[in-house]
Design a protein around this nucleic acid. Structure first.
Length: 547
RNA sequence: GGCGCGUUGGAGAAGCGGCUUAACUCACCAGCCUUUCACGCUGGCAUCCAGGGGUUCGAAUCCCCUACGCGUCACCA
């Protein structure tokens, strides 16, 4: 077979040679240890935690080493493409502070190694596909999808390995004449790799996260170019990461199984392999088993979930960093005020087993971050979140900024600040009682207090209430009411001898608490009252009395 | 079914042949503090590193087997 002739037949339009492309995309002028990384999301319109997870690794590795981090759009599957997906990717990642040095942007591409959208790289792939044909390493396959399906059924029946290989590779040895005729007739075909791999061989992959891995050599004649001339992931990955000069390929472990394909391709071209980093997957516990987070079942997989719930980007980052590098937590403990980007991230510290996603941990981290965040900043962020996700609250919240700043700061200063704020949706709920428009009674009075008693408490409370009192004076009055109404001033005494009292001061103050805040749990009542102002407090009590 | 990866407590994990009576963080539980809830503090939470064999004076750490979990086997990425 004259491979050159076949190559010319298959790729009459290829103008440039592989050598030309090597010149167009020369080795990058970077320091020896600089890392070049990328993420390659598909424009499906769905961007998830796993994308962010790998993006963070790539971003850190590149930017900690003065390297390059770029965005490549892997749009080789036009069926799954959604309009506007690139904007979604950019804005979602941008929200989390992921910025690229080069790659696809909202208005076209930026960088010298583009285009950064795979469909626009068609002629580049064709050039290298042609080279493979010339080498006798690729050939056209005319099998229809139905034929392949039939083949698969036969393989199942015969209990042999699935796939296109060995004697199952029907079109592997078609002669030139036949190929030329079928193409002339307009028959559609894919371009397959002619593998000389052996099913019994193993190949070594030196993975940066997992160490030395033994994988089965690829023996399948996998597809390089689909019938529309667009490459499969495998081919595009190898060509792009070579030409874009990626040093590290960070991807999820589901790619491990096909890594031998990629190694084979790199070796066939004689190109240097990138350093592979196969990351562990984010999992979820279900019925006692771990499973991969799923787009359909798990709303928390989508990045949009965290935006709409109002999680801080920093919290997500720090959570992901603790999962990625377990020593991050220790570092955070000893460096409580450093920006997280100062943490020295390393591949070596990465774990290789699937990690359960832990919302509790995320929330804890979020609390710790918010307690260190000044009120002004919280105000800004909450306001901007609410204007998008809760406009009604945004209007109420920003009507009196001074007031809003004060309610954020209730009991947040001193050595033991409260950690009430977790994420914005929760914060809105938490702060709602400060606003008349949002105020509702959520909890019932304590058991020991019936309606009449409540009214009695309110009556006395209103009579003695004086906004010039200090904390102690105020509480002494509550004590007085407690005592005269037959409740125990010291909760312990009530607990010891419940038959001697109607209840304790806990019941009395909680009754007042419910009138003022609508709930059983709240920060310090007097502090809250001072912020609410005398009028509001009296109105609330009065309203509760009249109920 | 083939191939591969993984397995330390409820979760993230440290651990790299003796310093381990298995760190640290979250969760959980108990107690203290306390007008509630939080916050904070104190203590508890794996007699043991999936199970079984080996190697060794000595193993969570090295080897083998088994089990389980996960992934993958598309003209999807």
């Amino acid at each position: 077979m004259d491979y050159q002739k076949l190559a010319d037949l298959l790729f009459p339009d290829v103008k440039l040679s592989p050598a030309d492309y090597e010149q167009i995309y020369p080795a990058r002028q970077l320091a020896a240890n600089a890392k070049v990384t990328r993420i390659g999301p598909s424009p499906t319109g769905f961007i998830h935690l796993g994308n962010l997870y790998n993006a963070i690794i790539g971003e850190r590795l590149a930017h900690q080493s003065n390297g390059i981090f770029y965005l490549r759009i892997e749009d080789t599957d036009s069926k799954r493409e959604v309009a506007g997906a690139v904007e979604i990717i950019l804005s979602a990642l941008g929200f989390f502070g992921i910025h690229f040095d080069e790659g696809a942007t909202i208005n076209g591409d930026c960088g010298k190694y583009g285009p950064y959208r795979q469909r626009q790289r068609k002629e580049i792939y064709h050039c290298f596909a042609k080279q493979l044909v010339e080498m006798g390493k690729a050939y056209p396959c005319f099998c229809s999808e139905e034929e392949l399906e039939q083949m698969r059924e036969q393989q199942i029946a015969k209990q042999v390995n699935f796939g296109y290989y060995g004697e199952w590779a029907r079109d592997r040895n078609n002669d030139y004449q036949e190929i030329a005729e079928r193409i002339a007739e307009g028959e559609s075909y894919v371009l397959r790799f002619r593998s000389d791999g052996d099913i019994d061989n193993t190949v070594i992959l030196d993975d940066a996260i997992r160490g030395e891995l033994q994988l089965q050599e690829n023996y399948q004649d996998f597809v390089l170019l689909k019938s529309d001339g667009i490459p499969t992931y495998h081919f595009a990955h190898v060509v792009d990461d070579h030409l874009m000069r990626s040093t590290h390929v960070i991807r999820s472990e589901e790619w491990l199984a096909t890594a031998p394909i990629h190694l084979q391709l790199f070796d066939t071209f004689g190109w240097q392999r990138p350093i592979y980093c196969h990351t562990a997957q984010l999992m979820k516990l279900e019925d006692g088993n771990r499973r991969k987070l799923s787009k359909r079942k798990d709303p928390e997989l989508a990045l949009e979930y965290y935006c709409s719930e109002g999680y801080l980007p920093e919290a997500i980052w720090e959570y992901l960093l603790t999962v990625l590098n377990s020593n991050f937590e220790e570092w955070r403990l000893t460096n409580p005020n450093e920006p997280y980007l100062n943490f020295p991230f390393t591949i070596e510290k990465m774990s290789n087993s699937g990690t359960l996603f832990d919302l509790d941990k995320l929330q804890n981290i979020s609390k710790e971050i918010l307690v260190r965040t000044p009120a002004e900043e919280i105000y800004q962020q909450l306001e901007s979140w609410a204007s998008k996700y809760d406009p009604r609250f945004a209007a109420i919240f920003s009507a009196d900024k001074d007031y809003s700043l004060r309610i954020i700061d209730v009991n947040r200063s001193g050595d033991r600040p409260r950690k009430d704020l977790v994420y914005w949706k929760q914060t809105v709920q938490f702060l709602s009682f400060y606003f008349d428009e949002l105020f509702t009674i959520e909890d019932a009075y304590p058991e020991n207090v019936d309606e009449d008693m409540a009214s009695e408490i309110f009556k006395r409370y209103l009579e003695t209430l004086n906004f010039n009192d200090d904390q102690e004076q105020w509480f002494n009055k509550v004590r007085e009411i407690t005592e005269t109404l037959g409740f125990a001033v010291q909760p312990k005494k009530y607990r010891k001898n419940p038959e001697l009292y109607r209840g304790s001061i806990v019941d009395v103050s909680n009754t007042i608490r419910i009138a003022i805040t609508g709930r059983l749990n709240s920060p310090d009542l007097w502090e809250i009252s001072k912020i609410l102002g005398e009028q509001r407090v009296r109105n609330h009590i009065q309203a509760a009395m009249n109920k």
